[in-house]
Design a protein around this nucleic acid. Sequence first.
DNA 1: TGGTTATTTGTTTTT
DNA 2: CAAATAACCA
Length: 736
Amino acid sequence: MAVVQRQPGKRDILAGLNEEQIRAVTTVAGPVLIVAGPGSGKTRVLTHRVGYLIEAGYASPWHILAVTFTNKAAREMRTRLEALIGLDQAQRLTVGTFHATCARILRRDGGRIGIDPRFTIYDDADQLEAVRQALKALGLDPKQFSPRSILSRISAAKSQFQSPQQFAEQVQSYWDEVVSRVYPRYEEILRRNQALDFDDLLTETLRLFHEHPDVLARYQDWYRYVLVDEYQDTNRVQYLLVRAISGAHRNLCVVGDPDQSIYGWRQADIRNILDFKRDYPDATEIHLELNYRSTRSIVEAADAVIRANRLRIERRLRTENPRGEPIRLRECYDEGHEAQFVASEIRRLTLRGDLRYRDIAVMYRTNAQSRPLEEALIRADIPYQLIGGLRFYERKEIKDALALLRFIANPNDSVSLQRVLAYTPLGAGIGDRTWQELERWAALTRQPVARGIAALAGQSDVVPPQISGRPARLLAEVWGTLQQLWEASERLLLSELFDLALERSGLAQLYHDAGDPEQIERWENLLQLRSVLASYDSVGDGALRAFLEESALVTDADTLDDASDQVTLITLHAAKGLEFPVVFLTGVEEGLLPHARSLESEAQLEEERRLFYVGMTRAKQRLYITYTFRRARFGAADLSVRSRFVDDIPVHLIDRGDGPARPDTSPARPVDRRATPSDGASSPPLAVGMRVFHARFGDGVVAEVRPVQSDQEVVVDFKRHGRKTLLASLANLTVD
DNA sequence: TGGTTATTTGTTTTT
DNA sequence: CAAATAACCA
């Protein structure tokens, strides 16, 4: 009977899959390693595998745990499964990132190892602040010991499951010695603030499992089928977590591609995937190598590039797709010109009609490279979305408002409290010295800073910090306001609480009542935050915590909006897992890709090469690779050298663009500039009164020409668009 | 205490 | 060329 019911669903689920994919979907028992090349239908296999487990009756949805790399990937998998197996079933699945999943486990069972379920999750900025505090407490100069490097060392130690004690025992250098003193302080600060950092979410969960086998057994019994995506980017702790949870049933399926391992710097250990067969000798290994995504030119080029790596499993990327367009390689004069080339090429592609903005992505190694690109796109009136960079949740006004909310949710979180006192009008009149004293008091009494303020307000019988006069009076007032907010948080909806918090803290007055455009934009950002909060109103009691949980764990890629028609600007790292018909890889230069800081070791260099490979394989139809002749670094211009990785692409796959004339793409050569400094590289000589034509603004008359540096600024009165000021070398004006 | 300016310093990638 | 920090004055 049951078998009869299963059959139709089963056929549906396997429809349209190739032989290897079907094997990957239907090999459900025991350990399975799926090595999936780019574009080989990996996501499809994963979702169908989950669907198959359910439809074929192997497991109920709640017995399945799927771990993804980003929240977006998790959401996408859930959405696809809703279509495949229905909303009800899909909702019962556990799909999430390692961090989100661990946070959930710790909120539920962390009490067993002394973790308060209200714990705050510290993001990167919070962690840095904690390191700075620790340095200060130790009397160390943050100039000499950069908090950034210390934090990354601490994080590395944590990822290897090393306690401060264990770390101290194996110190090998003076630098490590310093870190070994900061590390325990840092931990103490986090604990005092009831905070966990990203690493703690993982390591504490592992500790919970170690110390309480009954808890582990419960999760093992709960999650009988475990799937891990992007396995090549897991670290040691994640490896141990996976091994623990799947330890009893051993139904573990990991999917990944060693050639796309790009998070070594975050302690991702490529050996996890390379050694999977050693860890699970009975594992079934399945290779998905046929690429469905890209044209043959792109696949062959990418394959040639990655084959130059030594640390990899030998294999060949294949496709049955047509050859398509050659890969376009362009040298540009500088980053401004590169951006201009990208913009005009986007314009050209979209004007032809078959491509939309959303089909196009522009990728780069470092966030800093996005600036000139943005400027060129704005100038060309091309809509774009920037992924990463200054994220929404990193804007000052958002962080301030968020700090207030975080403090309301967890009064022991003194990093948030500090932010509230330092940056909101609530803390006006309370300066650095007062905060120093509060902190000193907190470290001395090993209590949260908030207790000290409570003591000052006469709300506690502990010995108060040594603060008197105006600051003491102000702090007592602040305490009163905060108490109102706590009380309000119990009866108000989240959006109402937010309104009250903005009003009482003075943030509303600060941003709303001020008139200048910058403040108005900030106020609009706050309103945007409010609308996010309002969507949690229906959650009920845990709304604030639910919101904070998600906002702490959002990824850059999570903010990607694929509904609207915009060009995507994105770092190579964040682009992993995405695909676009057209991809521009920009700044493909020595020092940038490979990055200057990755040149020391062969391993780092290979990771940079994988990064380039990831970028190339995002493209479905057209791939552009651009590099410059000179690039501004530190404000000053430096000559650039084209990346060595480009040399690995077979020349017959490349179009260098020096064939038939292409008026809008010829890069200005440096020689041109030097030869005619007052004349815009290849632009026609312009004079007042000339009738000119512009691709976007149409017909116009030159009203003014003035030299600027090595170029000319032209003021043109356009018939339909009015007066515009343009740079001669970029405007591409044609003289009628 | 808090706002201003001068100087100095440094840029990878992110859950 | 920024942003972040230090020094300075009100």
